[in-house]
């Protein structure tokens, strides 16, 4: 273990339903008139999977119809495959689900993950920068498809100092700040550039967030 080491998320289960029952489709938020197939994934990092689900919508004709975090996180999961989130992709046919799952898997392996903020996995941080939003997070955030976003997550106090540092460090505005506790007892903020498409501002905000969270993790009682 070392400081700011990536903690690669684990896909605990990945299953497909090629031709789902319409009642099930409706219950999970899909539209039975245009969705047929589902792809279901559970993961031990909820925010990484939210980003990966959005990545899937950029690669394939899929919609994210269901994505919810489980209470208290993966350390207190209901089963060894539950993790802390269930995500559901829906599409008109199974091949789109395959394409979407491939993009999702690659995103989790190479891009979206928590990082070790104190070198001992006692504090973790998710300082993610998205260059171009897919239509899932665009809808969730109210931003346009293709906008950039800093997706910042950390434990309650670390996150609070981190958000403050991020908002002051760059020309960004808060799209949404979810104060603790979330389902998983973290805090979350979505920031975007004051000017649309200002990716540099998002990057600067995320960099400041990392530094602030690591500082709190290493010096929790500093004055």
């Amino acid at each position: 273990m070392s400081l700011l080491e990536p903690i690669v998320p684990t896909l605990l289960s990945v299953r497909r339903i090629p031709n789902a029952d319409p009642a099930l489709l409706a219950a999970y938020g899909a539209d039975p008139t245009r969705h047929t197939s589902l792809g279901l994934v559970t993961c031990d990092q909820d925010d990484a999977l939210y980003v990966a689900l959005d990545e899937a919508t950029k690669h394939a004709a899929v919609d994210v119809v269901f994505a919810k975090s489980f209470y208290a996180g993966s350390a207190h999961a209901s089963g060894k495959l539950s993790g802390e989130i269930l995500g559901v992709l829906a599409a008109a046919e199974p091949q789109s689900i395959e394409d979407g799952l491939a993009a999702l898997t690659a995103c989790l392996a190479h891009d979206a993950c928590f990082y070790d903020a104190d070198g001992a996995r006692g504090v973790t941080v998710f300082p993610h920068v998205i260059g171009s939003l897919g239509h899932y997070l665009a809808k969730e955030s109210g931003l346009a498809v293709g906008e950039c976003l800093a997706y910042l997550v950390a434990p309650p106090l670390e996150a609070t100092l981190g958000f403050d540092a991020a908002l002051k460090a760059a020309d960004v505005r808060a799209v949404k700040i979810i104060a603790p506790p979330t389902e998983t007892n973290f805090a979350c903020a979505w920031l975007t550039g004051q000017r649309p498409g200002d990716l540099a501002a998002c990057r600067a905000a995320a960099a400041a967030f990392i530094d602030a969270v690591v500082d709190v993790a290493l010096r929790p009682h500093a004055r």
């Binding site: 700011l4 190479h110 891009d111 990082y115 960099a207």
Partner: peptide
């Protein structure tokens, strides 16, 4: 795929030596 975030974290690690 290239990761914007991973590049940022690598820079942060470098800042901390």
């Amino acid at each position: 795929m290239t990761s914007l975030t991973r590049a940022l974290v690598a820079e942060a690690r470098a800042r901390r030596g």
